[in-house]
Design a protein around this nucleic acid. Structure first.
Lengths: 250, 250
DNA sequence: CAGCGTCGTTGATCCACGTCAAAGCGATGC
DNA sequence: GCATCGCTTTGACGTGGATCAACGACGCTG
């Protein structure tokens, strides 16, 4: 398990060393309503901003690795992050994709239970855990929000277990596309031609399939006119009802 | 989705209607150290006990169904509970087994995201959610404990996704047996001849396999001398190191 | 202690998906 | 404009686990 390379990270994330943030970085935040900051008033947001640093990542950059001391939590402002676990022989399970507005870093004890990497270029807000915990004592709303986020993630994890354990390849792909559409809608983005920002390999590792099966299943759905594969990794859900029927109870 | 039948439940759970609890039911509780009550002093435990009801279940009894209004949370005192989700055509994914000391009922919004049933006869402590939420405002330790429980469950869920998406049948069974042993140890029970309280079907639905495959894999491990199948659903982990090697990074 | 129902085991066969291999197909750089 | 590289697609083939079908082994009940 490779440790987080802070020197490399500093070069890759210029904002990280700058330290000082803008006067009111949160005022302009487009995902404020979605995330952990949602229940806070502007004075309280200021307290959050005071312990926050901005982080910028290139596609492929690691955020942290499984087993590492969990020093920070993150809020994604833009971009896509993948979260995954590895088996010793290299088999990988992507346990989630995170988008703008999503929160990252809830950890049992003080050790990350998974690794995280940028899928696309990303902007994030980083909070040192111990400072956030101090702040939680004064602002219990944060802790409540965190519990609510954890509950939602738990429900999503159970849905994903149902998918991994009991759905066919076609049902998995259909569920995946609908999940992307649903989450794009939640953060106010267009949800018909959805942007599929991750590779076939990432999708396969998320759904418990190989890239070949993912590719074949996309082709099959395309040939039946259920989806359209467009340029720039966009996918149109031509027959959403059919997709919903295939997904089966997502 | 069948709603929870309260009348039937009342008959099945005599303790439920009794309402009044013993003077200090928690003092004698054998799982106090493991569960949500762990961080509370005896006066605070009294406050918990005041909003608590005892519940007794027979094997197979439902606790609640997915989609139902999440009115209660539970603490398991003894027995085994299964938590699961269904697809419309009846395919089932067991998302977890719960044992003495485990907490049940963290729900996103106010709707259960899964169903729960007794696998064996069970004793539980039941807390009405709204009363527990009131108590949380006065005892933030409870909320912290709940967040900690949720974090642990999240880590376990990710481990299970790795298992479901990327492990072979043999690796799944090995991981499952080691998980049972580990959890038996945590609650202070014997962990070598482990008690396997659930059926092959339950195990299959937990691991994303069929009963036949579960049975064949058990037989295979037995023939290789790695485990022994004893009477009364007990299994001895004859060669635990081999099992750990097979499980691969659990 | 015989009869019955549930659960577990075993065998034969099938198929959805994995594996292996090679050919498109954009992007990027020279 | 053409070589290169990574990603995706497509094809041929193999296989792990599912399915279908008996059969055995308990535990329960009368």
């Amino acid at each position: 398990m490779k440790a987080f390379d802070f020197d490399r990270a500093s070069k890759l994330m210029p904002a990280l060393s700058r330290g000082k943030v803008d006067a009111s970085p949160c005022a302009a935040c487009s995902v404020r309503g979605l995330t952990i900051c949602a229940p806070l008033d502007s004075q309280e947001q200021g307290q959050m901003a005071a312990i926050m640093n901005s982080v910028e990542l290139q596609a492929g950059d690691p955020l942290f690795d499984e087993g590492e001391v969990a020093g920070n939590v993150y809020n994604i402002t833009s971009g896509t992050v993948r979260v995954y676990k590895l088996l010793p022989d290299g088999r990988r399970q992507v346990t989630g994709f995170l988008f703008a507005g999503d929160f990252l870093g809830i950890a049992k004890q003080d050790i990350y239970a998974f690794s995280a990497e940028a899928v696309t270029p990303c902007l994030l807000c980083r909070f040192p855990r111990h400072k956030l915990e101090d702040l939680m004592l004064r602002l219990p709303k944060i802790e409540q929000r965190l519990l609510s986020i954890a509950s939602n993630e738990l429900a999503a994890a159970q849905e994903q277990m149902l998918l991994l354990g009991r759905k066919t390849a076609r049902e998995k792909i259909a569920s995946f596309l609908l999940m992307l559409a649903m989450r794009a809608r939640k953060r106010g983005q267009v949800e018909d031609p959805i942007a599929v920002s991750m590779s076939r390999t990432d999708i396969g590792d998320y759904l418990g399939l190989t890239t070949e099966t993912v590719s074949r299943t996309f082709t099959q759905l395309k040939q039946r006119g259920i989806i359209q594969l467009l340029a720039n990794h966009k996918v149109s859900l031509a027959k959403r009802e059919v997709l919903e029927e295939i997904a089966g109870g997502f």
